[in-house]
């Protein structure tokens, strides 16, 4: 028996022999030094990245305070500080009636309405596709997948015509935009569906055995557990309209009263002459748009991250 034991482990070679104290110590420190070196490099990279990433925004912030006009050449710090740009945004009569204030309110209205309605629609869609089983479910999912492969811009023209017939363009662009954003939002169900997929089915079943109808299961059991994804959907739905340029510009059709901030700000620097006159105003406008969204985002960052990492991954 004991012979067998020996043969199983022919060489028991120890990497560090116990008698070699000096060698042990050196190796030990070598590992630590490597880690420290590695970490330092990483810190350096991270700091560099922070600078690079934040640089443009710092620039915008500073340049928005520049009272002088064309500040395109390398000066970051304003020559002369002042709030002129901000004031001019709201009071200037250079463009048609409306101006920045109008754009801001427009966009705010659009995004609030969109946030609420879109969340409801997306949640309905994703819950149904995730938990309920019905004939044609697979077909529906495949169908929407195929629909999504068409570029969105294609539908722009006809939607514009339809909205025009309904008189929802130009000045009345706001309801028109809301309608368009919301109507097809059901197709963006993937992230929410991924989230719902992770809620255990036995909760549904326990509730149904306890006497709940499917509607009650959704309202009483699933929704209270879905706070992260609801907030994520609300947040993304809210942020969307602030950045939509293509569609908003097409529908607003150069009527200032109907523009949202994206289109409006772009019109400020659309031509070179406009650019030289309004560049700093554009910066100011950018700051005003960026700040509330950034603040909102920071507050709800936790939910956003959870939504992206939890739901988006499943595809």
């Amino acid at each position: 028996m004991s012979e067998e034991k020996k043969n199983l482990n022919p060489q028991v070679a120890s990497p560090v022999s116990s008698s070699d104290n000096i060698g042990k110590g050196k190796r030990h420190m070598g590992l630590k030094a490597k880690t420290i070196a590695g970490n330092t490099i990483i810190y350096v990279i991270l700091v560099a990245m922070t600078v690079i990433w934040l640089f443009p925004f710092v620039c915008i912030l500073f340049q928005s305070f520049e009272v002088d006009h064309t500040n395109m050449t390398g000066n970051i710090l304003p020559v002369k500080w002042g709030f002129d740009n901000y004031i001019r945004l709201f009071t200037s009569t250079d463009f048609e009636t409306g101006g920045f204030g109008r754009w801001y309110v427009n966009t705010l209205v659009i995004s609030l309405a969109t946030a609420v309605i879109q969340t409801i629609i997306v949640l309905c869609m994703s819950y149904t596709l995730s938990r309920l089983r019905f004939k044609g479910r697979k077909f529906l999912m495949n169908f929407m997948l195929v629909l999504g492969m068409f570029p969105g811009m294609l539908t722009m023209i006809i939607l514009y015509r339809v909205l025009a017939d309904l008189n929802l363009i130009k000045q009345n662009a706001i309801p028109g935009l809301i309608l368009v954003y919301v109507a097809s939002s059901g197709m963006g169900y993937y992230v929410s569906k991924g989230f719902f997929d992770t809620v255990p089915k036995s909760l549904d079943e326990a509730a149904r055995v306890d006497g709940a109808t499917r509607a009650q299961v959704l309202i009483k059991v699933i929704l209270p557990l879905s706070k992260p994804i609801v907030i994520y959907t609300l947040l993304t739905a809210f942020m969307g309209p602030w950045g939509d340029f293509v569609f908003a510009s097409y529908i607003a059709f150069s009527t200032s009263a109907g523009m949202n901030v994206a289109v409006g700000l772009q019109s400020l620097i659309a031509t070179p002459s406009a650019m030289s006159a309004n560049y700093t105003m554009f910066c100011a406008g950018g700051v005003l748009v960026a700040i509330p969204i950034t603040v909102l985002f920071l507050f709800l960052q936790k939910y956003y991250v959870e939504g992206v990492t939890g739901g988006a991954v499943k595809g």
């Binding site: 990245m49 922070t50 990433w53 934040l54 443009p56 925004f57 620039c59 915008i60 395109m72 942020m239 602030w242 950045g243 340029f245 994206a262 700000l265 772009q266 620097i269 650019m275 560049y279 554009f282 910066c283 950018g286 748009v289 960026a290 969204i293 950034t294 909102l296 985002f297 920071l298 960052q301 956003y304 991250v305």
Partner: peptide, 21 residues
């Protein structure tokens, strides 16, 4: 957070500005 901040700022602002840069 620093990196995530850049997601928060609407793309059209960042892009327009960087294009001017």
């Amino acid at each position: 957070t620093v990196l995530v901040l850049t997601i928060a700022i609407p793309q059209f602002i960042s892009l327009l500005y960087v294009s001017k840069m």
